[in-house]
Nucleic acid binder design. Structure first.
Lengths: 290, 290
DNA sequence: CATGATATCTGACTAAAGTCAGACATCATG
DNA sequence: CATGATGTCTGACTTTAGTCAGATATCATG
């Protein structure tokens, strides 16, 4: 009962029956699961028929019939795609949106009920984030986004909060050399976010300077996503972006209160150099030629 | 992306597709899922047909046919139950055991693969234990067992390890008044373990004495099962056992380094009393009349 | 040992999911 | 604008899961 594999398998059994219960509650709306899944996929913004089919892993014949049955119910309308009349685009009717909302309410109620029965919901949520990140690991996408977008701001806020917890003296972003957003946009730099499903779970900024090098800033991995070697993937992606921009020398600063970061740099070709700025927080400085 | 319900639902999505993948890998052995599930239930030691049917939630007609198909494949043999010839008992043939082992290998490989891709497997396992315990909460059974059984010894070892971590001076069971096992067996006392699926996640002992009261000892809840009010359920069950044994006065000792325990006692009718033994570890003493 | 309860099995059904071949319209390309 | 590729649809199927009403054998009980 102690070995890791049994523990994973116990988790699998627990989760299998919970998933089954959710499916059963979906059947309560008088529609087979297949049709309900298509309706929900459309409700969640997947409009292209081929995309839905791919997402749900359905045969084109089956997909077509499920769509037809949703149309017969008056929940969905399909039209030809504007750019390519072979492709079809599905969208919900007014009734369809109402029905989708009912499914959403079921899902939300189920989630709330699960949380409510537990007196330490925060620990439960952290565990769920951890597992969801691990399970969707190979589906994490690294996207280059604007450093002032909502996702970027979320990551940075989490990053600052963590520095505040880990630095003995706390962390005040206004005392740090906060990079100008335009230095982290092409063509001067870049900002990359790691997305797991809809949740940002990591980020890194590449900040262009006028001193013959670019700096790597704001490398952050969500606690729930640690252990997945995401830091390394983010660094690789930034280096690739730097090469594209013709940058040949990278620098970064960090703090010895973040040993896992320094460890990552040391094992990926960075070498320690003397202090190259007057930011009050960092005490370790690295350089890498690419 | 921050609200608890979205986080639970992200977890649900991640887990649904992982479960689907496992099901699909099971189909690879050329047998429908229903039959595979029955085969595995038998392999895991469920032999009584009614029990399997109940466990898998199958209709008796369907169950009968699935069994028949496994018999046709030469994987299963059924015989009449020794005590009741209406009931049937299923067991695996030699070929059946081989086939079951193949399913086990698939499950184990899937679990190992999942663990291997994560560099912090212990954190992942703790998260899985937490969630599995929360999901199977209403299926936790409280069983009265022998205080020297394997499950009891596992719980006690975990309990001592935790005391060692939480007491500043550590914990050495040989210095404590270790209760004699026979004092925690009927008719003098009782030992109750909380089982979640196959994993013991909590325990409590009721120790009979010759001083006109019985003592509650070794109340432990696994870290993964905290927040489920399991401590309270265990205490209620012991009190019920004590009443059955004609015990009317209960005592217990505890340590202020375990504040959640003292809190539980205070809110469930226990009142603090002066020290009533010379055990070196406890510094808080309680009594309850039942 | 008659009687009602229980456990399983069989036959006859339905619903849902999935498969496959071919039809059809549309697209990209030379 | 002919041609092959692509996306969707339809018809004709199969498999799997599940339901339900008896039939049959056995059990517990008085």
């Amino acid at each position: 009962m102690l070995d890791p594999v049994s523990r994973v398998r116990r988790f699998n059994r627990a989760v299998t029956s919970a998933v089954g219960a959710l499916d059963t509650s979906f059947l309560g709306r008088g529609r087979p699961l297949g049709a309900a899944r298509v309706l929900n996929a459309i409700g969640h913004g997947r409009s292209d028929v081929a995309e839905i089919r791919d997402y749900l892993g359905l045969d084109s014949g089956l997909m077509s019939r499920l769509l037809r049955s949703l149309e017969d119910e008056g929940l969905v309308e399909t039209t030809a795609h504007a750019d390519d009349a072979r492709r079809r685009v599905a969208k919900l009717t007014r009734t369809g949106r109402r029905e989708f909302a009912a499914y959403e309410a079921l899902s939300n109620a189920q989630a709330e009920g699960f949380l409510a029965q537990h007196s330490q919901a925060e620990a439960l949520l952290a565990a769920m984030d951890l597992i969801a990140s691990a399970l969707t690991r190979e589906r994490v996408s690294l996207d280059e986004i604007d450093p002032q977008s909502e996702q970027a701001r979320y990551c940075l806020a989490e990053y600052y909060a963590e520095l505040g917890r880990r630095f003995k003296q706390g962390f005040d972003v206004s005392l740090s050399r906060d990079p100008d957003a335009k230095d982290m946009r092409r063509p001067r730099g870049s900002f990359i976010v790691a997305m797991s499903d809809t949740l940002p779970i990591g980020c890194v900024g590449l900040k262009g300077t006028d001193h013959g090098y670019a700096e790597i800033k704001r490398l952050w991995v969500a606690p729930a996503a640690r252990g997945l070697r995401l830091g390394r993937r983010l660094m690789d992606a930034t280096e690739a972006a730097a090469r594209e921009l013709g940058i040949t020398l990278l620098r970064l600063d960090t703090n010895s209160a973040l040993p896992e970061a320094a460890q990552l740099y040391r094992t990926t070709g960075w070498r320690e150099i003397p202090r190259f700025n007057d930011d009050p927080y960092p005490d370790l400085f690295f350089e890498k030629r690419i």
